[in-house]
Amino acid sequence: MNIEWLGRQFDTIVFLLGWHVLLTVIPLILGLLIALPLGWWAHRSRRIYPLLVGVAGLLYTVPSLALFVLLPLVLGTKILDPLNIVAALTIYTVALLVRVVADALESVPEDTVQAAKAMGYRSWQSLLKVELPVGVPVISAGLRVAAVSNVSLVSVAALLGIPQLGSLFTQGFQLRFFTPIIAGILLCVILAMILDGLIILLNRWLTPWTPKVVAS
């Protein structure tokens, strides 16, 4: 590790880190917002569930580099536009979370749903005040996976020349120089851990009602 080099590149690294955070977090939030209604739909309809989950599975199969390259065709963007990355990661996040949201709603005990209905909750009230809150632990588990894999996926975009922490890898490769590579890997892992931790905290804050068991 060349500490001096890191010191000189500090501003650049912060800039790359900032982009990395944006490219990771924006798709995560967008993906969740889109997956919530879709997952609810899949949960409501026995016919829609296999369809949505199937399509999500297919989308998930497309390798990220390929998706980054193909999206400009659909969106009409330039190949270097970070928007492609945001769109691609949003697609992955939705693909992962549709099933998670549907399963989360499915995991709410039938008795609880029936009780809400019997007390005169309208279906949207039951969804917002009972089913979603009770499904939070399952949704946050899925969100954790999406967040951590997004961090790694973003760095692939460096191969196309879109700046974020992955740029440190390509730079290191071209210069045959380990310092930026190791710094990039460390920052990615730390970022993933911080996002993961934040979601855990958020989950804890939203679910004071769960039995405190030692979670893995």
Binding site: V148, V151, V156, A158, G166, T170, F173, R176, F178, I181
Partner: peptide, 18 residues
């Protein structure tokens, strides 16, 4: 499972090649 999911594979690939 957790650690490897967080590791960026591009970085890992380049690091090992070098």
């Amino acid at each position: 499972a957790n650690a490897l999911r967080a590791l960026p594979s591009v970085g890992l690939l380049i690091l090992l090649v070098l």
